[in-house]
Design a protein around this nucleic acid. Sequence first.
DNA 1: CAGAATCCTG
DNA 2: CAGGATTCTG
Length: 824
Amino acid sequence: MPDHDSDSFLNRQTKRRRVDIGVKRTVGSTASSTAAATTATTDNIARAKAAIFSAMNSLSSHSHHGSDTDSMECSVVQPHGGPGVVSASDSESKSNVLRKLLKRANSYEDTMMPFPGTTIISQLLKNNIAKNGGGHERGERGDRGDRGESGFPGSGLSNASSDAPQEDACSNSSQDSTPQECLSPFGRPPGLATFDIERLNDEHLRAKRARVENIIRGMSHSPSVVVPAASRHERDHEMDGEREMELDCPPQQSQQQAPSSPRGGEVCSSSRENKRKQRLPQQQQQSFTQLVCQRKEQKQEERRQLKLQLEDMQKQLRQLQEKFFQIYDSTDDSEHNDLHNDIGNMSEDSPARSDAGGDDRGGDDLRSDNEMSDLDPGHFLDRARALLQEQALLADGDKPRREGLGRSKGHGGPGSSMHAEGKQLAETLKQELNSAMTQVVDTVVKVFAKPPRPTPQQAFPPLSIPPERFPTAVNGDNPNFHTANQRLQCFGDVIIPNPLDSFASMPGIPGTANDQTEALPLVVRKTPSEHHHQSSAVGAHGGHHHPALHPSSLSATMGFSPPSFRQPFPLPLMGYPFQSPLAPTGGYPGKDRSSPDSMDLSRETTSLRTKMASGHHLVHHHRSCSPAHPGSTAEGLSLSLIKSECSDLQDMADISPYSGSNIQEGLSPNHLKKAKLMFFYTRYPSSNMLKMFFSDVKFNRCITSQLIKWFSNFREFYYIQMEKFARQAINDGVTGAEELSVSRDCELFRALNMHYNKANDFEVPDRFLEVAEITLREFFNAIVAGKDVDPSWKKAIYKVICKLDSEVPEIFKSPNCLQELLHE
DNA sequence: CAGAATCCTG
DNA sequence: CAGGATTCTG
């Protein structure tokens, strides 16, 4: 299709030879052919790239599923433990926190990793779950165990004090429960505990349990037990949000409904939380003692598992941190110091640090932003990546640092030889870690979960992608994405050009609107001085994106792909100039792509697109547009969503491979200026001529049209002036054309010069004066002859003038001609 | 009728 | 100068 368009266009140019006013325009058929050939070649390249891209997408798709699976796995919930089992809750909370954090990482990874299952984190998590064995009681925690849990979601720092466990409060009243909490409107009937339903991975099983639970609840209703919902509510909310996004588990919903929990406001009430609330009450129910006993065993088991998991995760976390640091400390320290610190604070194996961290955290609210940014997907990705690399390195020999980490992980075992102090320290550290995690999770959840969730779902219903992913991907573009990407680039082999950026490099984009023949506002206002690297209308193409043009080969092993792959198009951003073919306009079907904001955002988007356009991506899209690749459904989200308005894709293909040159994607003011100067030589330039003289511009239909339009406008002005002065001369009593002359100091010339050579920094060729004079006389004669009565009387004049074009100096072919010309 | 140039307007 | 409407051509 692209070829066709291009060819047809060129052919038309060649064949057409039509003219303004009946004068045939000279067009170089040869040049035309050449251009066509070039196009074809590039197209082939494009196809190859498309294939690659396609493959990538496929992988991405897989990863997605994988992530879901993981999520489910991770969603296992700790069964309620009796009074003596409180520690379980503790470990559970930690484990949850860690898991969530880690999972979050997974999530992000999934977003970009082709092989979800292979992500280190997920693997580790799985292993943990699988291998959980003897339980480690955290005696230290004691009855306070629940605290950690309760504290985690809300304000990570305040967990020790304000976040009194609502559960405990309500059930035992031994804890510093807040009355309000208990009185919360949300307090629901002391339903029987939902046992450990949550832990069951099997949805059906869970559903059954839920039903049973309902029945039981109906039977036993102990008013004495009120679930504190107020604070819990908040917490649940957050957690729910996270869970919902991460897990997207249907079973939970059924359960939550069952409990008849009045919390209508919540997006997705956490079944798990609900259950826990009900746990204690349940135990108080004698009638269910047996049942409880049975459950207890399971709970015990669960507890042990959870503990193990927690420990493992902690260990993993440390390892990740360590590795991450190792890798980044040497590279970009400054940029990630925050992250480093944050993690460090959470690290258990560095007492001093942890302590300090704890203190810091007390008044560390100000850092929330930083933390947030640090905890973006990119960070997780980085960490994961770091881990991978580390593993590779470890194969050769363990690194000292890692050793240190490894050793740190021994705490917690019941048989641990730790001294009391050590235990306390460990405990403290754990809490710190917990709180830190909480904070982190909260921030992340808030940031990624809240805003856009609804929109994405609507946009991509069929994809059934966890809502959170979209926001994530989208948000990722902003501050975080770039940094993440940059960091990724540290791993040279795995670097993938930012897909979004590549869009900008598509020359065709500006005019991409299929049949858009009229020039779009391609001209970007720039300062003449910045002739080079000036950002083209299409945006930040100038000079910076080149690196991106060397798309690193995708590392299959790493399988990292920018989030943007999955959600490459921040749709809202896909605005005007980029109604590009590539633009996933399809992504948001029916969406107004030319929203007013688009322009503003375009700049931002542009940079992203630049990279996106580079390499295979660009080409791929291109291909998808071709008839041969109709649906390209299997090609993954981005592709499937991409509606191709491929008209000008081919043009893009032409230029996509360009490298290093100063080719621009749009016409700049300098180009306009140059065109005006050229007008002194040629009034009717052919499109091929334009291409030759604007070699620094990537030609597409739009550009061509615009250039032609420019000259058309030039002519318009020129002829208007001619007619005006001719009539003026007539009015002035001039009787013979011979009396008319055009000199450099005449009015006419000044008018023209003012228009085409405003700065007067160009020496107008004498030939132009001649032509102008001829033109003036033509008009004069015509008018005198009364030909102006004929509506098309000017055509004859045009016909004459168009033959007067002279050769344009070679120097105009130079992209730098302006400098050269004006400096002479 | 499509495509191209011109005309007209802002 | 850009856009849209109109005209013209093959």
